[in-house]
Design a protein around this nucleic acid. Structure first.
Lengths: 137, 137
DNA sequence: TTATTTGCAAACTATTTGCAAGATT
DNA sequence: AATCTTGCAAATAGTTTGCAAATAA
């Protein structure tokens, strides 16, 4: 597990625990939520460190940063290819593993941009918000 | 043009000018950029008013709010169905009118969310940033 | 012994809000 | 008159940054 990070980059306890915690859930937590999770195991970590390390981990491709979204960024410990659905009411994010394949959809489009990626995101209402319709959590 | 807005909603000069300015460009400006544009015609308007009215106009469907994005929200005066591409370097947004149709892609997916929408967004590098590769504007 | 990383606090950016004054019906 | 809207300024939320101390190669 030593060589996961790049040259001159260390797998510190902070990084390891952030990564472990993120991989242990499927909830796509925000930086702040990750901060709360990690603090249970490492009470003196700071929010700045969490932000810095999420940035490092996502630029290394070890976690996925979900910024194609309203509001806060969220993070996903599952880097396998899949899509997301975001609750319009509470902002919670779920996974979509079985959407039709859109590979190649970016070919031959009329744009002067050099295309580097495509993102398909669904929006909807999560089960909890469907239930408690009035009091959007 | 009086009945464009809902009951008890007025088409004030501020709203009209914001709408006109936004419809006069294809650049998907940020709230701050719209503030700059509108101030040329209405120097005493405040940024808060611009934010408030962009919210009103987009909730009425008269403009489109692009929040599926990193960083700032952007606004589009063209509400016809089309997709967007965002420059990874400078954040600029372009239009994509000729992407393959993905209508119905949300049908029968394995999720407990009630699906209400789909968004396809491309990312890439705009012509200006391709040119000046070092000095990302 | 040198470069990286951390905790802390302050700074920053984008956006929202409270409120008294102004405008519209 | 009653309601909606504005300008202004202050507040808020999320994130980033500077820096001295701590840590690890």
């Amino acid at each position: 597990m030593k060589e996961l990070l790049g040259k001159d980059m260390r797998l510190t306890n902070q990084r390891r625990i952030i990564l472990e915690e993120l991989k242990s859930v499927t909830t796509h937590p925000t930086a702040d939520e990750i901060y709360g999770m990690v603090r249970q195991k490492m009470p003196r970590i700071s929010l700045g460190t969490v932000y810095r390390n999420l940035e490092v981990l996502s630029s290394l491709g070890l976690v996925r940063k979900l910024e194609n979204a309203a509001g806060q960024k969220r993070f996903d410990g599952d880097v396998s290819p899949h899509h997301h659905i975001r609750c319009e009411v509470c902002g919670k994010v779920g996974d979509i593993f079985d959407a039709p394949d859109i590979t190649g959809i970016e070919q031959g489009l009329g744009t002067d941009f050099q295309i580097t990626g495509v993102s398909l995101e669904f929006s909807g209402i999560c089960p909890q918000c469907q239930a408690g319709k009035k009091l959007a959590q």
